[in-house]
Amino acid sequence: MAITKLHEMHKRRKSRNVGLGLVLVTFVGLILALTVVKVTTTDLAPLGGAEAAE
């Protein structure tokens, strides 16, 4: 038996809450993937060169 009673409002809003949750999870995944792509494809040679010169 659940320790809290689910309000009827939660049932009504389930669709938008689940939808928003999926959107947020997708957003985090997209930003992670974009970060990986940017880090792995950006040419950091000038930075490495400058460090090597010091």
């Binding site: 409002m9 009504r12 669709s15 938008r16 689940v18 939808g19 928003l20």
Partner: peptide, 11 residues
């Protein structure tokens, strides 16, 4: 209850 939109309504 009429005010509550589904996710599809926002989409």
């Amino acid at each position: 209850p009429d005010h509550d939109a589904d996710f599809g309504d926002f989409f």
